[in-house]
């Protein structure tokens, strides 16, 4: 028996909107510690890892570990029927081939339930070891989204270079080139407006802008984004989900022939 009650149901709506175009089908794993997902895009270039810790739910019951295969497009269709202020409850019985989403309006005058068919999905779980990254940049998520969008009008790839001076986003295309440098800026009024660079070694990596733009759909989940880079590793783009966990996107770098 599984029963998870999330008062801030909009968080789950936002999570689905941010991953449904990257991944078609995924297994949601439920254990006593939380509700999580790890899934790769069909080309195995990008991966999304989601964690919603059990403590973030108003009510969290998970009698035994469960893995529920869901089509994210269909799940998104159902969650779009929930109001932004609704409380969302996810329910499933042991061994059932369906999951139920229940939506309650804040005033309790409208209660809806949607039953969705589960599916068998081959597990493609990657072991991602903890790593020390050479450069970690934290910046306003809206700024990062703006940069990715702007650059994708000019080129297909972005070179992200971190030095002591700042983080540089560069692209080149048929019409020309672009370079955007964000300097460390910790003297802002609000901490979420700061750009903070923690660098042990300078790093420069090339990524497909199409994927970066897809990751920025999670911008509504967090005011800040953290970009972790090492020369030998995929980049990690992380959006913290208030008090509950995170959504992390991993993207393999492009390499010169």
């Amino acid at each position: 028996m599984l029963e998870l009650r999330l008062v801030q149901g909009s968080l789950l709506k936002k999570v689905l909107e941010s991953i449904k175009d990257l991944v078609n089908d995924a297994n949601f794993d439920c254990s006593s510690s939380g509700f999580s997902l790890q899934a790769m895009d069909s080309s195995h270039v990008a991966l999304v890892a989601l964690l919603l810790r059990s403590e973030g739910f108003e009510h969290y019951r998970c009698d035994r570990n469960m893995s529920m295969g869901m089509n994210l497009g269909n799940m998104s269709k159902m969650l779009r029927c929930a109001g932004n202020d609704d409380i969302i409850t996810i329910k499933a019985d042991d061994g059932s081939d369906t999951v139920t989403f229940m939506f309650e309006s804040p005033t309790q005058d409208k209660i809806s339930d949607f039953e969705m068919k589960l599916m068998d999905i081959d597990s493609e779980h990657l072991g991602i070891p903890e790593a020390e990254y050479q450069s970690i940049v934290t910046m306003p998520s809206a700024e990062f989204a703006r940069i990715c969008k702007d650059l994708s009008g000019i080129g297909d790839t972005v070179v992200i270079s971190v030095t002591k001076e700042g983080v540089k986003f560069s692209t080149r295309g048929d019409i020309g080139t672009a370079n955007i440098v964000c300097r460390q800026n910790t003297t802002v009024d609000k901490p979420e407006e700061a750009t903070v660079i923690n660098m042990s070694e300078p790093v420069s990596l090339t990524f497909a802008l199409r994927y970066m733009n897809s990751f920025t759909k999670a911008t509504t989940l967090s005011n800040t984004v953290t970009i972790s880079l090492s020369s030998e590793l995929p980049v990690v783009v992380e959006y913290k989900i208030a008090e509950m966990g995170y959504i992390r996107f991993y993207l393999a770098p492009k390499i010169e022939e």
Binding site: S43, H44, L126, G127, I128, E232, P234, P253, E256, E257
Partner: peptide
Amino acid sequence: SPLQNNLMEYYCMV
């Protein structure tokens, strides 16, 4: 244009 690498080059299936 540089080659797109794959996540499997970095991480193993578990």
